[in-house]
Design a protein around this nucleic acid. Sequence first.
DNA 1: CAGATGACAGATTTCAATTTTTGTCATCTG
DNA 2: CAGATGACAAAAATTGAAATCTGTCATCTG
Lengths: 197, 197
Amino acid sequence: MATTDALTPERILEATEEVLRRHGPAKATVVDVARALGVSHGSVYRHFRTKTALREAVTQRWLDRTSTSLSGVVAGSEPPETRLRRWLAELFAAKRRKVGDDPELFATYMVLVGESSAVVNRHRADLVGQLARIIHEGLERGDFAPADASPEALARAVFDATGRFHDPAYAREWGDPGIDAEFAALVDLVLRGLRAP
Amino acid sequence: MATTDALTPERILEATEEVLRRHGPAKATVVDVARALGVSHGSVYRHFRTKTALREAVTQRWLDRTSTSLSGVVAGSEPPETRLRRWLAELFAAKRRKVGDDPELFATYMVLVGESSAVVNRHRADLVGQLARIIHEGLERGDFAPADASPEALARAVFDATGRFHDPAYAREWGDPGIDAEFAALVDLVLRGLRAP
DNA sequence: CAGATGACAGATTTCAATTTTTGTCATCTG
DNA sequence: CAGATGACAAAAATTGAAATCTGTCATCTG
């Protein structure tokens, strides 16, 4: 079978994701991954130097799926304010979906957050960069007030301000009643802060 | 000795705080507290039904010291915007001081946060209430724009938005370089959102 | 008799022995 | 000879027995 024969990083990531889904981050071992692929664990180590690197690669792929989907909103043609609202709403929705659909992968992600892994930092920087692009456009068009802060600093502030609705540390609260109203109130406040008078 | 003779809740709390400071939340036992007081652990249980109740009482007292100090800012005579800025800055400063000066009590507090204890919820409600009073006054005076949200909802939004600078989950980042600039940027954004055009 | 005590049962934690896992590498194989 | 293998040492996790801790309560004491 030519398609499944070669042991590629891609195939290993696929198998690792599956193993993580089944066993969770605490129980999943490299030997499990090797077994799922029908190879020895030594072969897995040929492609990923450590177990940590493997976990990070899986998480990165998983997080990138969110970034990619959000970048569609950034590239949209609606006015910046609308895109910013949609972007924040979609980020919140995506995170909620991730907890609900993939609790084990979400737990893996939270392990990396706890270790403040480079992967998580890159993901955050990615998202803040997307925000900065929307805000930059809003400033240029005059929709947003030219505050004395740079688009990057504003983006960071918006990201921080909405942390309760995307930081995994708060995942437990995402099912609370009233959470949507609180999200709406916060987004309104932040957007009033950005908007030109 | 009349002053130290009676076994009062107050004396127990004092001793518990000391034991927690020395051993941390993981190692401190009720027997340690009793030993520090020179009584049997049964006597401690006469005043606090469980070890959890004792931990919560200590934490509550500790958190109340912050609330009380902040309520001075709420009662001040400066314009609401100034008080809001000061209140947020003092909350951030107080939390930083707490981590630095009392790491073990801070760790105890974080245990309760993890258990979403009633004490922590009361503390949060307390703080949001203080914010709401400042915001209410600002709305009445016309300094803040009468958004379609209630002072309480606005207060909650402000509290959530500034979480990175008071939620203990972020304590690790409070020493990062640039944190003060990020705090300032976020406060500016939030205050622009509140301010009347 | 109000309040303290400490023996006690059950729950939890600790610690050391054992097992499993990680990561390396000399060897093998197609 | 590129890539896979599995034996191996060191590190980490698991296990189960022993020790400690929590919470109760019958008893004691000033």
